[in-house]
Nucleic acid binder design. Sequence first.
DNA 1: AGAACTTGCAACACTGATGACGCAACTTCG
DNA 2: CGAAGTTGCGTCATCAGTGTTGCAAGTTCT
Lengths: 220, 220
Amino acid sequence: MSGTTRALRSDAERTVRTILEAAERVLSRNPAASMEQIAEAAGVARTTVHRRFASRDALVEAMAEWATRQFAAAVDAARPEQAPPLVALYQVTANVLRVKIDWGFAMSRASVAGVAGAEVARVHSEVEARCDQLFRQARTTGVLREDVEPEWARRVYYALIHEAAQSRDGEPEALAARLVDTMLRGLGPGPGLPPAPTAPSVPAPTPTAPPAPDPTAPAP
Amino acid sequence: MSGTTRALRSDAERTVRTILEAAERVLSRNPAASMEQIAEAAGVARTTVHRRFASRDALVEAMAEWATRQFAAAVDAARPEQAPPLVALYQVTANVLRVKIDWGFAMSRASVAGVAGAEVARVHSEVEARCDQLFRQARTTGVLREDVEPEWARRVYYALIHEAAQSRDGEPEALAARLVDTMLRGLGPGPGLPPAPTAPSVPAPTPTAPPAPDPTAPAP
DNA sequence: AGAACTTGCAACACTGATGACGCAACTTCG
DNA sequence: CGAAGTTGCGTCATCAGTGTTGCAAGTTCT
């Protein structure tokens, strides 16, 4: 890519960082925001943004790359393969939340196929693999049930992380605790009450979907 | 709004419907798609789209309204307040999934504050209220634990619905069953193994967040 | 069949966003 | 201090998407 560009001067570096942060702030509220708005939020002229990032896409790419690096670092720092699964799960969650709270937009862009650059995609799929690995180990350790598809487990995990990051009510550690607790124990009561039937003995859930309403009806 | 417009002719009505469906298909893949692309997907001239929908926003609004009507119908058809909470939960989930699978984009737009029209917003917050009511009842019935914040419970529920709709692997009933099961029991083992500690006895989860990487680094 | 309606096509106007320049003033760094 | 680098500002060029209009050809409905 931008292979051999001489290192930026310190002030320019600061500007780049400021722009990235502003872009995250603005785009997470309105993904269709203009460069102008981003520049304004960064306290910088619009032309400066264009000077640092060749195009809008380049900016988003840079955000994704920046966020991805933090993401990878967050996972690494938790050393998921060194600790027992349950602990690892908790640590990784807390660390990732810390990043995702501040870089939600950039990270979501990074995981959308086709938008991400090769490096970004690589890191994400690598983390995904480590996640699966962690889940497999959690399974053999008995932390995770054996009858759940890994695919679904990861989906649920990612979804909960997304939600927890959105909510922002509390410290990452607290959010992580609640998240892991919810994921493993669910929201139902522990042992003692009738567990939710997997295939509920309900009168074959009537395909209760009503006849399609009329799209042109003037709304009752 | 468009108060007194004479009913459309049958072919026009069909066109409107076709456009709405095409728009959902296209926009769910690429929210920034142009009217042109939507028209093409609908097998219709671009001008026709503009004839039926005054502006892009109007089109999205119409999609939201259309989806919202199906959404409300789906909830109603499940009669959540007539059945025992667990059954109701399952029924509602299955019905809503059926709609959300086909109208994911429109529904997500509908729940974004500010974008939705008054009627759409009203219906959604009404459904939200019924959801909370259902959860409250589930709580007193012992289907839901008492120590979870209702806010978090609803967030988790919505997030799981979103994921289940995304995955699309299976019939709505099967997805609903898995979803409800996951939400209530979690992914951890049932009674028998050490339940996940709410506050894990871990060496105070080191703020393992590493030093911020250099955004301008040429990527190792 | 005939009136009323709908659609495709082609053309046009308009707007907002994007991206590129050059220059003067300022900051960093050796 | 002085060279090199950086930023703000004004300016210009371009372009894609949006939204309109008029008309001929086709469809629906009575």
